[in-house]
């Protein structure tokens, strides 16, 4: 290897010895300012190790002079937020739901807080803004399976629906009249026509008339003689315009055949009391609160 380093005459820089078609590659040094910045960053990094968490140790890590980490910063930020909210939270804890709704300041606070909690926990099933999905009730309408008063909503959020882990959970169990062979096929057809007649949509008047007896014997105990539902039992009103799973003949037949049993988790214990109160106030305000 040649030890002679050729110098380029025009620029005064050394060449690398690489040559293509008579063009020689220059070994142009980095601009000095660039090199100084490079060294400065190395010096800076040493200071950084001292101030911030850096090197791992066998069991832990160097925490840095001020023990400032993203994690402690997050905790501080969260603590600050909690401190700012504390006066409201204390009042939320102390007051009844009715009192909260009548205090415009707390109402606003709960609406804003409840909206955020709803988006995090409830929206996946009930839809953003509580607009509902097939099988998951809309919380904006005025039809409630388990009651739409502040207390009833608060209770439902606490205990859930058909949530086995909670002893007090809202529970009912509609028989699967077809699958379990409680009713004959014809009876089911008749009772479906009878149910459709509540909203004036029956197609077979004779069948509907025959279905009245079937309804009285099998359905009225929960849904009521007038079929307007019983909220204590969570039995839906069959005479209104709102159908959770669908109100056409085929879907109602499917419901009678196989039953339905939606599940909602119990949020008591998962969310604290104040948060559930905010959630209740928010849900109640969506348009259907009773």
């Amino acid at each position: 290897m040649s030890t002679h380093v050729e110098k380029d005459q025009v620029s005064g820089h050394e060449t690398t010895g690489h040559e293509w078609d008579g063009i020689k590659e220059l070994n142009t040094p980095l601009p000095s300012w660039w090199v100084y910045v490079f060294w400065a960053t190395i010096v800076w990094s040493v200071g950084y190790w001292v101030v911030y968490p850096s090197w791992p140790t066998a069991t832990s890590y160097l925490t840095g002079m001020f023990e400032t980490t993203n994690r402690t910063q997050l905790h501080e930020t969260m603590a600050n937020v909690a401190a700012e909210r504390a006066p409201y939270m204390e009042r939320l804890a102390a007051l009844d739901l009715d009192e909260i709704v009548n205090d415009s300041e707390l109402l606003n606070f709960s609406m804003a807080g409840g909206k955020a909690v709803f988006a995090e926990n409830c929206a996946p099933c009930h839809g953003t803004g509580g607009s509902g999905n097939p099988g998951f009730p809309s919380l904006q309408d005025d039809d409630w399976l388990w009651g739409g008063t502040l207390e009833a909503v608060n209770e439902t959020v606490h205990v859930g629906v058909r949530w086995d882990a909670n002893e007090d959970t809202r529970f009912n169990d509609m028989p699967a009249f077809g699958r379990d062979e409680i009713l004959e096929r014809e009876d089911i057809n008749d009772v479906v026509q009878y149910v459709l007649a509540f909203t004036g949509r029956e197609t077979d008047k004779a069948a509907a008339n025959r279905g009245a007896g079937v309804f009285a014997d099998n359905c009225a105990s929960c849904h009521g003689e007038d079929a307007k539902g019983v909220q204590e039992l969570g039995a839906p009103n069959l005479t209104d315009a709102i159908w959770l799973y669908g109100g056409d003949a085929a879907t109602i037949t499917e419901t009678v055949n196989n039953s339905r049993g939606g599940v909602m988790p119990a949020w008591g214990g998962r969310l604290d009391e104040e948060t559930i109160k905010m959630l209740t106030v928010y849900v109640h305000s969506l348009g259907g609160g009773q």
Partner: peptide, 18 residues
């Protein structure tokens, strides 16, 4: 005007806008 949902059906069959 509320867009989610565009309207809500009430139990008496009326529709409501927010």
């Amino acid at each position: 005007r509320d867009r989610n949902p565009i309207f809500v059906t009430l139990s008496d069959g009326d529709v409501r806008n927010g």
